[in-house]
Computed example of a mutant assay.
Amino acid sequence: MSHGPRRAPRALMTTLAAAACAAAALGAATASASASTTWLCKPGLKSNPCAMGLGTTVISPTGETEGTLTPAQTKSPKIDCFYVYPTVSDQKTMQATRRIDPEERSIALYQAARYSSECRIYAPMYRQITLAGLLKPDAVTAKMRASAYADVRDAWRDYLKHDNKGRGVVFIGHSQGTFVLRQLIAQEVDKQAAVRKRMVSALLLGGNVLVKKGKKDGGDFQHLKACTSATQLRCVVAFSTFNAAPPETAVFGRAGEGRSVVAGQSTAGTEVLCTNPAALAGGSAPLTSLYPSAPFAPGSTIGALTTQVGLPTPSISTPWIEAQAFSGQCTSTNGINVLTITGVTGAPSLKTLPDATWGLHLVDANIALGNLVTLVHGQVARYTAH
């Protein structure tokens, strides 16, 4: 990165753990329809953070440059991706407006832009609970949470009416975005057979997706199962990343913990789903990490934290960095289900932020991004063939 790390205040780092909890209460109340959708990413936008170049520098586990590549990009994608971003807003109010700030542009680049090789990307702005709101949870109202969900719901309906035209859809979310999508998919997709048929898959990272204990379905969704093979459609990939056994108080991976609940649902008889995107049937496999070479929104809170995680950031000319420094395997410790990563020789030691209970939440979307894009590529081919 071109700028040095800035330590986030400890109080803020600790209270960031309320991010998913704030999102968990979304939608319990009925909200009125929001104003017309503001799109962060949409085909045809003049300034679209999801439409970036794909040139990539491959580095070794220790950070040395090994070569460059440019992956093939579908000229006319036949499916779409619907992306909902995590908690990033540094606006000083408890709830963000739909104004597009540098934080949203950066997170769209980091988490969604790479999928542009496979799909047209739609990403709505929504009035999420901000980082400031997480510091003062008592000031965050049910109406605020409901309107945040309503923004995404209305954007989805807007997209279906004006842009979808029967195309297949991949859902992509992380953290607060995943909590929003858990509810949206349950209410607007899973229960509606005609809409459900258009779903290619859902990548719901860092948001405690629930299934029946010992099963790959049930829990959040009635008809959708976990992805267990590369040829499966209308399935879910979900995981939270740790590089050590999660503590008993882990924020992610635990059913019944406050951040597992959406709209007052019961978590009895459920567990948090873990799907290894590199080995859908189970076991350990190498992970292909992809992340931008550009720094994340310099001066922002999340930007400061990302500089401390420990991923190598060599000075390169391409927009993307690719590395195979870790393998991953879904593990269960005291009923906490997470994707545990292990470094190869020379791999960097990644730092859990804000503490061990969070694991490597900040890298969920990028630690196996190469595997996820490869999975979507195959799913798209199968969906369009049928």
Rank of each mutant, 00 (worst) to 15 (best):
I59Q: 13
I59A: 06
I59E: 13
S60E: 07
S60C: 05
T62M: 10
T62G: 06
T62N: 07
G63E: 09
G63Y: 07
G63P: 03
E64P: 00
E64T: 11
E64V: 00
T65Y: 03
T65L: 15
E66D: 01
G67Y: 06
G67P: 04
G67A: 12
G67L: 14
T68H: 09
T68C: 06
T68W: 06
L69W: 04
L69I: 12
L69S: 08
T70H: 02
P71G: 08
A72N: 09
A72Y: 02
A72G: 14
Q73A: 15
Q73I: 14
Q73E: 11
Q73V: 15
Q73P: 03
T74S: 14
T74H: 08
T74D: 11
K75P: 10
K75D: 05
K75Q: 12
S76I: 04
S76T: 12
S76A: 15
S76H: 07
P77H: 07
P77G: 11
P77Q: 13
K78R: 15
I79F: 02
I79T: 14
I79G: 02
I79W: 03
I79A: 03
D80S: 06
D80N: 13
D80G: 05
C81R: 04
C81F: 05
F82M: 05
Y83H: 12
Y83W: 11
V84Q: 01
V84T: 10
Y85N: 05
Y85Q: 04
P86S: 11
P86T: 07
P86Q: 11
T87R: 13
V88L: 13
V88M: 04
V88A: 01
V88P: 00
V88T: 09
V88E: 02
S89F: 03
S89G: 05
S89N: 10
S89K: 08
D90C: 02
D90L: 04
Q91D: 08
Q91A: 10
Q91L: 07
Q91T: 06
K92P: 03
K92L: 14
K92R: 12
K92W: 01
T93F: 02
T93E: 09
T93R: 12
Q95H: 08
Q95V: 15
Q95K: 08
Q95W: 02
Q95N: 04
A96L: 10
A96F: 03
A96N: 09
A96Q: 07
A96C: 07
A96W: 00
T97H: 01
T97S: 15
R98V: 10
R98Y: 00
R98K: 13
R99S: 15
R99Y: 04
R99V: 08
R99L: 13
I100F: 04
I100T: 12
I100V: 14
D101G: 00
D101Y: 00
P102D: 05
P102Q: 13
P102W: 09
P102E: 11
P102R: 10
